[in-house]
Design a protein around this nucleic acid. Structure first.
Lengths: 199, 199
DNA sequence: AGTACTGATGTCGCCTTGTGACATCACACT
DNA sequence: AGTGTGATGTCACAAGGCGACATCAGTACT
């Protein structure tokens, strides 16, 4: 198995390594500098020293270059939900709290820039919504796999996601200094209060 | 005020009336016949007896032709939320129940076709998500206008929207025969149970 | 009546997104 | 040396979307 010794998987001298990473970085920079709509895919590829066609082989479309992290997020979230034995809503909230610590905690500045880019473009907002949706679908599926019913799984997931969204918005908003995990706990309590109030 | 007698607002002989309506109808038909992606804007305009450029003056993009009804929905929803004095979550759920009766009740078949078109295209799904989002923003704003806090308004709105989405999915699913309004009530009860359960 | 204005529509040309088909060329394996 | 293989570049093209200008019925103003 001498192949295992090859650390630089294939083509190293011929092409700069990590084309995908360079494209993501180039896209992020350009979106920040000029805005999403003022940046063409050709611009991104050029800055990464690649061709437009190569961009489209690595990303489905221009927006995807900005949402590469969401796959990892889904993974961690599903794992967290699977490994607990709490009630569904509590499980989802706890999973988000874990994600808050593992993924978001030390990236506030990055997240703020990312969010400002997204807010500047309707196209990106749509994509973000879809990513959130498929993420929720994955979590709901994980709950169902644990034996919960379709409706229960969906409602717990969506409620948990709502809690996260609100907490996240507060966390990203300027002037806040609480941790995301704490905000999640607070918002979850508020949600319980609101939904259990008497009509 | 003799002008009030003019029923056919302006240009009647020169152009067929209701260009917008004709384009919406043409788009709906073509999307159903060939699918969204297999239909070009030029196709739609041609079927409506108009030019591509005219389409883009009336609709921001190809997807918008399918979501014309969402403006009316938002209007009714906001009105319903404003006119009640129930607690926030209950107010939103009641508003959705009202919308269920006033707008959706006698349109199951149409809604099913619409939904099947949307489900066939990721682009349309993204747009639907965005429409739902701006609708929620409007409802939340209405709650805030009634004096509720930002967080309360958002949580109540999002929870209400979740209830509606789940009920709507059940209603549209084949084989169901309950009314949308009843489904909303049921789902709201389930949500209360889930969020108030002990960890 | 004549004329200028308005406003919805059509025409033309352009850039950008996204894709299929084919060429290229360092590296690996035989 | 010969032969793949796989990531990349090149070319051409359909479709989305937009700016600028032309057209022309009806309206308003004189």
């Amino acid at each position: 198995m001498s192949q295992c010794d090859i650390r630089y998987h294939g083509h190293m001298a011929r092409w700069q390594p990590d084309a995908r990473g360079r494209l993501e970085a180039a896209a992020f920079e350009l979106f920040r500098e000029r805005g999403f709509e003022q940046t063409t895919v050709t611009d991104i590829a050029a800055r990464a020293g690649l061709d437009k066609r190569t961009f489209y082989r690595l990303f489905g479309d221009k927006r995807e270059a900005l949402f590469s992290g969401s796959g990892h997020l889904e993974e961690v979230l599903v794992k967290a939900v699977t490994e607990t034995d709490a009630a569904p809503f509590e499980a989802v909230v706890a999973a988000f709290r874990r994600v808050a610590g593992e993924i978001f905690a030390d990236r506030l500045e990055l997240v703020r820039v990312l969010q400002s880019i997204i807010e500047s473009s309707p196209e990106l907002q749509e994509r973000e919504l879809r990513k959130a949706g498929s993420l929720a679908a994955a979590v709901a599926a994980a709950l169902r796999a644990k034996g919960f019913g379709e409706t229960t799984a969906t409602l717990a997931t969506e409620s948990g996601a709502t809690v996260f969204r609100v907490a996240y918005a507060r966390w990203v908003a300027p002037g806040s200094d609480a941790s995301l995990a704490d905000l999640i706990t607070e918002v979850a309590t508020e949600l319980r209060a609101i939904t259990s109030a008497q009509g």
